[in-house]
Amino acid sequence: MKKITKATYLKWYEDMLFWRKFEDKLAQVYIQQKVRGFLHLYNGQEAILAGALHVMDLEKDRMITAYRNHVQPIGMGVDPRRVMAELYGKKTGTSQGMGGSMHIFSKEHRFYGGHGIVGGQIPLGAGLAFADKYFKRDAVTLTFLGDGAARQGSLHETFTMAVKWNLPVVFCVENNGYAMGTSVARTSKSTEIWKLGLGYDMPCGPVDAMNPEKVAEALDEAITRARKGEGPTFLELKTYRYRGHSMSDAQKYRTKEEVAEYQKIDPITQVKDILKENKYASDKEIKAIDKRVKDLVSECEKFAEESEFPDIQTMYDVVYEQKDYPFLPHKL
């Protein structure tokens, strides 16, 4: 595994803080009704993305996830201003304003969405890996899903084929404890999700995902296995989300005390503590990072605000690859 150094921690702190503040800004502009639709925020789960990016080969590896997907493409290299603009429905957005919060994509940075149907992205992730194996490319696909998606048939059907065909894919459940407002224990007798891998003879295990080092170690092993042609791995990344499932969630299914318990092991605080303990950064340097983050978030907001809405014709242009598709008229 690539060594975890002072530079890693400095990058983790800045990235993770930016993701957190980016999401906070979205919550704010959502309340102002500048961003609409559903809005699912990543707050609390940042150690997963930080750890994953540390061990991925960002020149060739791929990533796909569900609808809690604003910050992953940013981590993969997408301009955050374009992600913010997508949520504003602007033509400068990653999908020209066609996708919105749940559907961020970047072909250039090998980020394959951004998927709104729970579990719908699981076979897609295996399919991306299928093509890499088919064309003998040396790439690995990280396929993320939530704890709710683990109960979808798509996971089980995909696991059967991914193992049998030795596909270069890592399946990562981000278990934040709740499928919308329903805890894992309320819908399933088996609450250790990673054990589902056992039934498919797939290497599997649980990971403390409030800590980016732990995530990096587990994912490094899994990615290495996939890259060597030894097939998929199933990891249960145990995490927590501080905000509701989406913005309309009153969060009556959990206590404030429970949230406070997790905030004690907040991934960003853990990273910050290490920065301080090891004297990787002075208070002044940390403040400078905080300011950079704040400025970049403001820049994203400004860019999104000032961008234009898409032209009506775009709605037609993005549907088919065929240039002259004869759409039926819908208005007089």
């Binding site: 394959y112 076979p123 897609l124 992730g125 399919g127 991306l128 890996a129 064309f135 995909t158 084929m161």
Partner: peptide, 14 residues
């Protein structure tokens, strides 16, 4: 469901 999705994913990747 599984192989339709794997087909679509592979079509997104060449």
């Amino acid at each position: 469901l599984g192989f339709s999705g794997i087909g679509v994913g592979s079509a997104m990747n060449g």
